[in-house]
């Protein structure tokens, strides 16, 4: 059974320049206990998916479609109901942990708050629970660290704090938005290892958002490749990475292949000014006439007119 079922999700932002479509007809399923990764270049709408699930999009966003989580449509829940799901059944960690923690409260207070927020324990027990969480995420001498402020922590330790906050209620789904991007390479590996341990230990599902294909391969079973607010290819991660079908996936993988960097020519189209036909065709080396004229549908996990030919 699916834990999370996203169907036909559309997100528009109303800006001064008019309506901007950032997600169009996005669909995704996450099974209980599975792990899936959204990959793609910056600005392709990965984070928007995560924020839509958490209902944390800014007020100028218009969202339509459905996001079923445990048979409830998150998009139509009352504010109070979605608040009880946040941090309780679905938790999220972000990139740049240093900016994600409140500078004027102690780290321990911010973890304990997350424990208390969902009525998981009494006020006096929250401290012990928070210290336990810090121990769980591998923060050394948690009792002493509890009373310190975020500026006294390193980036990697701050991400551990963020994970402690997210783990307060052992959620069914963990959303990790670029959890390692701002960290040193050696620390990245530790954080990846920690997330891996925790999802196995507590049987959580993971929605990972990254542009780091290495991190994706470490943590996830499935992958969905996004381009300009749409999925262009999805499937089992091993299969997709070994035998990519969509020209964009191929280019993405080749960009970091062993024999040097090979950037994809051009850049992601502006969302206000998408090309006719397939949105990738201006950058696609295989594009033919039909790619310029009609937009391909997502069929068998791939959105391309030509994949059978290639």
């Amino acid at each position: 059974m699916n834990l999370l079922h996203i169907n036909d999700l559309h997100v528009n932002f109303s800006t001064k320049a008019g309506q901007v479509r950032v997600l169009s007809g996005f669909c995704l399923d996450i099974e209980k206990g599975s792990s899936i990764c959204l990959v793609g270049e910056s600005g392709c709408g990965k984070t928007i998916v995560a924020l839509s699930i958490m209902r944390l999009l800014p007020e100028n966003a218009q969202v339509s479609g459905e996001i079923q989580f445990k048979d409830r449509d998150l998009l139509i829940l009352e504010k109070e109901e979605i608040r009880q799901i946040r941090g309780h059944e679905i938790s999220m960690i972000f990139e740049q942990p240093a900016s994600c923690l409140n500078p004027v409260f102690t780290v321990g207070d911010q973890i304990a708050e997350s424990v208390r927020a969902n009525g998981l324990c009494k006020k006096n027990e929250a401290r012990d629970a928070a210290i336990e969480l810090m121990r769980l995420t591998g923060i050394p001498s948690p009792k002493k660290r509890f009373d310190q402020y975020p500026h006294e922590f390193s980036g990697g330790m701050l991400q551990r704090v963020m994970i402690s906050i997210a783990m307060a209620s052992k959620p069914a789904l963990l959303i990790a938005d670029e959890p390692t991007t701002s960290l040193d390479v050696t620390v990245q590996a530790q954080i990846v290892e920690l997330i891996k341990d925790l999802i196995t230990k507590f049987g959580m599902s993971l929605l990972l958002i990254t542009h780091d294909l290495g991190v994706a391969a470490e943590l996830c079973r499935d992958v969905a490749v996004m381009y300009a607010g749409e999925i262009v290819e999805s499937g089992c991660l091993n299969e997709v990475f070994r035998h990519p079908k969509h020209p964009y996936t191929k280019a993405l993988l080749r960009a970091i292949s062993d024999d040097g960097l090979r950037p994809i020519k051009g850049s992601v189209p502006e969302l206000t000014n998408l090309p006719e036909g397939c949105w990738f065709h201006p950058r696609c080396p295989f594009a033919e006439d039909q790619c310029r004229l009609s937009k391909p549908e997502l069929k068998n996990g791939i959105r391309c007119h030509l994949w059978k030919k290639n």
Binding site: M54, L56, K79, R83, Q84, I85, R86, G87, H88, S91, M92, F94, Q96, S99, C100, L101, N102, P103, E113, S114, A117, N118, M162, I165, A168
Partner: peptide, 15 residues
């Protein structure tokens, strides 16, 4: 507009 406010909301704190 700061990220830590988003974190506070993501934790499920009351507005």
């Amino acid at each position: 507009g700061q990220n830590y406010i988003r974190t506070a909301r993501a934790k499920g704190l009351k507005e």
